[in-house]
């Protein structure tokens, strides 16, 4: 590819100043910056509303971060392969809807049915992207429309029954152990996080995702069957979306077809904040977790400030644009 002449080359001076050394350190250790941002945000929020700096205040932020974090886990593993899932919110909604509908039949059936929604929709995404080479954005955007149409139609027919979540899922999404201290949802998220971090760092499958995203041609030439990896990773992302939907539905208690709508962009934003590159091959789930926590705190802050949905959407949109720009520049500088 040619470089358009409009961009000035990055000028580097011979003698790095103290400031440049600090900048270099921070560029090489983005998680330090993220933790710093998180702490500053918590303190600022505490300054706005002094009650926030308490266990229950921080707990609320963490609870808000859970569905974002779980959805963003799916976005992270997909973005590593150069993909994205714009159907994640609809998968989560669909899974929660089916689980609520099947709740009268017992918790086990409800959960399995909900997770199946994610697995089926995710696998369909994977087949579209991996086998038929449809662009991930188009494939998942179309899947989102398909799911919305199907569920709007099914809500009046085959799933016309209960929209109330069963007690077990409600406990999982909104309940806590040790009285009202440690929420189950946070425990589930922590457990999933360990699995995903282990998978990305240690397992062959995890390393395959990095390889595929970093250089698809080289991975193919070294014997990787990319379509299998893509089908597997989209299915896994669908499953994670379904889990996020169950947790969210459990917290809200009753489900409707707008349940997870507002979580799609935050899930992409969390991965982008965490330093996962949309081009693929670069990113960690640890960064995404920090991104989700930052958004959780931001949500508390915006609530205290009385900022509505309008400001939030503009803010998330700006965060995605601004940070993807910043990270692309940092990657170019490296």
């Amino acid at each position: 590819m040619s470089t358009p002449p409009t961009t000035a080359p990055l000028v580097e001076s011979e003698e790095p100043t103290q400031l440049q050394k600090v900048a270099r350190y921070l560029i090489n250790h983005p998680h330090v910056v993220l933790i710093g941002v998180l702490i500053v945000l918590i303190l600022v929020t505490g300054a706005i509303e002094s009650n926030y700096l308490s266990f229950s205040g921080l707990r609320n932020s963490a609870l808000f971060a859970v569905p974002i974090g779980v959805l963003a886990a799916g976005q992270t593993i997909l973005m590593l392969t150069g993909g994205i899932d714009l159907s994640a919110a609809m998968i989560a909604t669909g899974a929660a809807y089916v689980a609520a509908n099947q709740s009268p039949k017992g918790a086990a059936i409800a959960i399995v049915a909900g997770l199946l929604v994610g697995i089926i929709a995710g696998a369909a995404n994977g087949i579209g992207v991996g086998v038929f080479r449809v662009h991930p954005i188009i494939m998942t955007l179309a899947m989102s429309g398909i799911l919305l149409g199907l569920f709007t139609s099914w809500a009046q027919t085959i799933f016309s029954g209960s929209t109330r979540m069963g007690d077990f899922i409600r406990t999982l999404g909104g309940g806590s152990i040790f009285g009202r201290t440690l929420p189950w949802a946070v425990i589930v998220w922590a457990f999933l996080s360990l699995l995903i971090i282990y998978m990305l760092r240690r397992s062959g499958f995890g390393r395959t995702l990095y390889a595929l995203g970093d250089n698809p041609v080289a991975s193919r030439l070294s014997g990787l069957r990319s379509w299998r990896v893509l089908v597997a990773v989209y299915t896994l992302a669908g499953l994670l979306g379904a889990i996020a939907g169950l947790l969210l539905g459990g917290r809200v208690g009753a489900v409707d077809l707008q349940l997870a709508n507002n979580f799609l962009l935050p899930s992409v934003a969390a991965a982008v904040i965490g330093g996962t590159s949309i081009f693929g091959g670069v990113g960690t789930y640890t960064g995404t977790i920090l991104g989700a926590l930052i958004l959780g705190v931001l949500q508390s802050m915006l609530t205290f400030l009385g900022a509505g949905q309008a400001i939030q959407q503009m803010l998330y949109g700006s965060i995605v644009i601004g940070l993807s720009w910043l990270y692309t520049r940092i990657a170019a500088a490296q």
Binding site: L265, F279, M314, V320, I321, R329
Partner: peptide
């Protein structure tokens, strides 16, 4: 143009903005 971020990402942001 300036950021060299793919169209799809920037316009996903602008959609929500």
């Amino acid at each position: 143009n300036v950021s060299k971020v793919p169209d799809i990402v920037i316009t996903l942001g602008s959609l929500y903005f």
